[in-house]
Design a protein around this nucleic acid. Structure first.
Lengths: 343, 343
DNA sequence: TGTTCTACGTGTATCGTTCTACGTTTTTCA
DNA sequence: TGAAAAACGTAGAACGATACACGTAGAACA
């Protein structure tokens, strides 16, 4: 085992060869590479020319031994949710003109895997880490933050001191949903939330839902069902809701693709979607727009979240140590799945 | 710029400290780490105990300097397509009991970005690279393969010598689609393919479509439209097809979410989906199952593809040099979007 | 004319691991 | 019993880049 392929490393140009070709010292080349102080424009040009000529590319492992690797780690909980693609677009935009590259890992929503992925990113000397939808405890996040600059997207902890957070206001988002549903004439509004690791964005959304219901004088109808992200379980939970003794006339789902599954189950049960039951999702992913779904949802500007998180983590790498908590306001996008008028 | 955060690297336990704690040489610890030849069970146990006690974790950068990093690079063209989640599941399963970790990068279907991501993975000393849906030229792939063990998923090149491929039989998949549609009574079957970088899986699917049409005596009705992956363009192309002089009665789309968009446009144009126009996708992603979509699609066992690709790349890392081309048969999953009977 | 700055470059120790080369002990076998 | 072979363990040189400590030349100042 573990034998590197023969001669695979061959042909790699080193900083030493560049230095020789350019007729300067190794240190000078390194300085050019890092835009460090102490190189004249002439020398820089000479070195650049040699690098281009020889096709030199710095080896991240070697850089990592003493300095940075110019790599950012991005941890996603799940590859199925297209919302993360929006975040990724923002991250890529933010990285456009920098030396940094992103590497992604998936934590699959399992706490054990999440720490595994994060540890693995620390081992691989990522200069900074962006965690999406983390379910880690505060101590755990603090511990990560002592090792690497850390920014959490989709994790509410406004009193966190050691890492930044980037969020939409989930509580307000849920509130908007309830207000919208009430305005559309729905009363028995249930919420379908995620079962599993406790997540702060979900508890915020649940809180917003409760507040909205109470605000509308529907405190007695509060009904939160929980289901894991597995389709079979979602179907089961949905049937339970829709076939139970007191059928809700609207269901607010914690994310879009769960809502799509709920629409599916409702349809199969012979319920018409806006009329018999209204459905709302969260994240406003591209699937909401399809005519067959036409799903009302909350837009939380994933691209902006990704952009901001990237900005923050790079700022931290460059030395910022005071905390920043960025919050974007959510926006409700109404579609047919909650419009009783024209259905 | 570029100053590592102060004291961040602190607290990292090195192999030297483990050796000291266990009372053995540094090299002995390294051998334990790599399961290398020449350590007794007693010594191994002693070292393992010290590693656990001190919380030692090997630093990938340092390993990469001389040996492997135990990291695999996975390049995806796009985060929006949930099909890749299936592949990823297979990859993760294959990696379960190994030392390897995966890092993902996105190439966003832009050739320039793709080489960028791959180069960046080579710079970061990935031990092997899995490329999904690559649009690189053969020379380009050969060049990558000289540097790192390489496996391509979703790229047909049965005569490639330097890298392995893992595919479903796309031509047969498309053939199955046409046969299914013909059997269901459709005749004017159009295909909606992807515009942009030439991709071998798409040309295979187009070929299969052509063959199927000719086989059914419908060679005169062959009609392949092309559109980029941007929703606006897909809508435009679809309208063109459905509002043109000779409206097709079925559309075969190169991937599921394009098919969903086509269903959406057709619905908005007042066409009923299985009756007026039949729609078929490819990949059999979870969205196909939703009642509101109920999309007929081709299952290409993404999980199996991921599993095999991972197996192959690890074999290559361990020294295999003869080529292997793995092909899985596609399977058609019929749903309502092509069933004219019960519409 | 000397002294002090500053800008520009260089030499080299160093990061944490792997791996080669080489001893020493234990086992095997004639 | 002795010699060869196998097993075990160690020392120390790499790997490629960074960054510290240090020279040197020219400019600025008195």
């Amino acid at each position: 085992m573990a034998q590197a392929g023969e001669g695979r490393r061959n042909g790699r140009v080193t900083i030493r060869e560049v230095a020789e070709d350019a007729g300067v010292s190794v240190a000078a080349v390194s300085k050019v590479l890092r835009d460090a102080y102490g190189v004249s424009e002439a020398l820089r040009a000479k070195v650049r020319a040699s690098m281009d000529k020889l096709g030199y590319r710095p080896l991240a492992s070697a850089r990592g031994m003493r300095g940075q690797t110019y790599t950012l780690g991005l941890v996603l909980p799940d590859l199925r949710n297209p919302f993360f693609a929006d975040i990724m677009t923002g991250v890529n935009n933010a990285l456009e003109r920098t030396q940094y590259q992103v590497m992604m890992g998936i934590s699959s929503s399992t706490a054990k895997l999440e720490t595994g992925v994060v540890d693995s990113m620390i081992d691989r000397q990522m200069d900074g880490i962006i965690l999406i939808g983390s379910t880690e405890t505060r101590e755990s996040l603090n511990s990560i933050a002592t090792k690497k600059p850390l920014v959490a997207i989709g994790h509410h902890d406004p009193s966190a001191e050691t890492f930044d957070t980037v969020n939409n206001n989930d509580q307000q988002g849920a509130l908007l949903v309830v207000r919208h549903l009430v305005a559309a004439g729905y009363r028995d509004i249930a919420m379908l939330s995620l079962q599993g690791e406790p997540s702060s964005i979900l508890s915020e959304r649940e809180m917003g839902y409760r507040r909205g219901m109470i605000e509308a004088g529907l405190g007695g109808a509060i009904n939160i069902a929980h289901s894991p992200q597995i389709m079979r379980d979602v179907q089961f939970a949905t049937r339970r809701l829709l076939q139970g003794p007191k059928r809700p006339d609207a269901i607010f789902c914690w994310t879009d693709f769960i809502a799509l599954e709920v629409i599916s189950v409702a349809t199969e049960l012979g319920l018409r979607v806006p009329q018999d039951v209204g459905i709302v999702g969260y994240d406003n992913t591209m699937y909401c727009d399809f005519a067959q779904n036409s799903l009302t949802s909350i837009d939380q500007s994933g691209e902006l979240l990704g952009l901001q998180a990237t900005r923050l983590v790079i700022e931290r790498i460059n030395g910022r140590s005071d905390v920043e908590h960025f919050v974007v306001p959510p926006r409700l996008v109404a579609r047919r799945s909650t419009s009783r008028k024209e259905g």
